[in-house]
Design a protein around this nucleic acid. Structure first.
Lengths: 233, 233
DNA sequence: CGGGAAGAAAAAGTACGACGTTTATGTCAC
DNA sequence: GTGACATAAACGTCGTACTTTTTCTTCCCG
């Protein structure tokens, strides 16, 4: 899922970001603007704009007389959805997927607890609908449909929490779920236990049962982590 | 704490970012590159690079024939440390501080639990040292020294968790703690209970007691949230 | 009177070339 | 060997000209 929109800038940015995230340029390695301009057959102007963006993500640092230096992983803005997408597309997808899933396991239970307290009737209805959609698509090779409902479900919970930081994690969760579905066993139907947990979570939120919502979400997260342990190195 | 490094780009970026984060430009409002260039007395090149960076943070969107449109808050990359800094410097610091503190309360307990399992002896030592430093500076108007140790303490815990996403939240926590110290009652010594909790947390991590570490961190977070409720609207 | 097509205009996107500025590095004298 | 100085390599900034896309306007035809 590379952000493709016509435009030289977008193309160069995406290509370079992908390469750096994939580790094709070692930290400390220097790239020269002129060389990049030549390589992509674009003007230095375009390259400079790309470098500035990459720099704002701390993927590179540009210094005079030395060039554009690739930064070590620890410096990267790992919460930037763009960076996450690049990394998930690259070599260390498994590590990345695990990190993000642990993050989810920390945040989503708390978010669900808050959602049980704050969710509007509309959000509760949408949640139930998503849960039903998950049930409906949980058998018979409808993984794409299931994924869609799963993403929507978690997004609603995060939004309903009422906390902006949680809400904005919806994109990250979407990336994780999509990555999990698309790059692991596609031939198995989702875990029935997980489906049940989602249905019960929707109920708990509707009834305003914060502790149940938190506990159920924790169970979902544990299941997701376990799934990773089983299916990934 | 505006990121000042000589350089036109930095100056323009920081000024514009600050203004947008502060809501001085309503969502939907359009800025024209030429006008910005005139206003800051820089070339269009510089403005364009700034706009590209702002665009990567989803603070604005640039479209042909229409201009640079300010995006609504929901679109912003609220995890970008730069954006966080801008917002904390602006008008809705209280709301922002609360959001971030809730985020902390979700993540840090889990991170502390992991840290109890994974921390190296060096990290344990550093943690204890920070806790002692907090004790030493907890009385007698040494708020700056206390803050320093507090930040270092939490940073170590997050790093020791072994999870990259948690570790990279150290900067956010640092901003929150600094913001809290610098923009609320500066004339009071820190809560003695919090100091004790940090000392006991350092012990728990050293002894590998994951559940104690998690529980103690939760208590610290609850205290921080309560402090916000008392001192902020 | 309405609608659609052609045209004009506005603003960003791209390119290029020139010059300024910083700074790593090598050299020369002592 | 050490320090000052010169050099050059790379980014930083600028101005201008041209391209492309999008939107507004106008005008003609049904």
């Amino acid at each position: 899922m590379t952000t493709q929109g016509p435009g030289l800038h977008t193309h160069v940015l995406d290509t370079l970001g992908l390469e750096i995230a994939a580790g094709e340029h070692r930290p400390g390695q220097v790239l020269r603007t002129d060389e990049l301009a030549q390589r992509f057959d674009v003007s230095r102007t375009v390259v400079r704009e790309v470098v500035r963006v990459l720099e704002s993500m701390h993927l590179v640092e540009s210094r005079r007389r030395v060039g554009v230096t690739v930064q070590p992983t620890e410096a990267w803005n790992v919460y930037d959805p763009q960076v996450i997408r690049w990394r998930l597309a690259g070599a260390d997808r498994p590590r990345q997927l695990r990190s993000l899933t642990v993050l989810r396991s920390a945040i989503e239970p708390v978010a669900a607890g808050l959602a049980a307290r704050n969710a509007t009737p509309e959000q509760c209805a949408a949640l139930t609908e998503c849960a039903l959609g998950m049930v409906a698509t949980s058998r018979g090779q409808q993984l794409e449909g299931y994924l869609e409902h799963d993403i929507a479900f978690h997004r609603i919970v995060l939004n309903a929490s009422g906390n902006e930081m949680f809400a904005r994690l919806g994109d990250v969760v979407a990336e994780v779920l999509a990555g999990r579905t698309h790059h692991q066993v596609m031939f198995e139907d989702p875990d029935p236990a997980a489906v049940t947990l989602h249905v019960r979570l929707a109920e708990a939120v509707r009834e305003g049962d914060t502790v149940a919502a938190e506990r159920l979400t924790k169970e979902i997260a544990v299941g997701a982590l376990h799934e990773l342990d089983v299916l990934a190195p």
